[in-house]
């Protein structure tokens, strides 16, 4: 049986973590492929309903990063 690969729904701030993810990509760093990124304009855009909607539709976990 293949290893369990969770889907992690990630809300990343355009200016912070999204930039970091971009930089990580440009620098050819390796990281797990389990995250599914949604870019948000700012962490202030975050709302609890996004998290619950994500979990409800089957995400294994939610990660919010600013």
């Amino acid at each position: 049986m293949p290893e369990y690969e969770p889907k992690i729904l990630s809300f990343l701030c355009n200016w912070c973590s999204y930039g970091a993810a971009d930089l990580a990509g440009v620098s050819r760093m390796e990281y797990p492929p389990n995250i599914r990124i949604i870019r948000i304009p700012c962490t202030g855009r975050m709302s609890p309903k996004f998290i619950l909607a994500g979990l409800r539709q089957g995400a294994d976990a939610v990660w919010v990063s600013g």
Partner: peptide, 30 residues
């Protein structure tokens, strides 16, 4: 373990990789 928060600056690609790895590992434990 199903909800994570973090704070990463756009220059901290190493921290980004660290956090992603850590969170993925944690979620895999569930």
């Amino acid at each position: 373990g199903r909800l994570h928060f973090s704070w990463i600056s756009s220059a901290e690609s190493t921290k980004f990789v660290d956090v992603v790895t850590k969170i993925t590992d944690e979620v895999k434990m569930l």
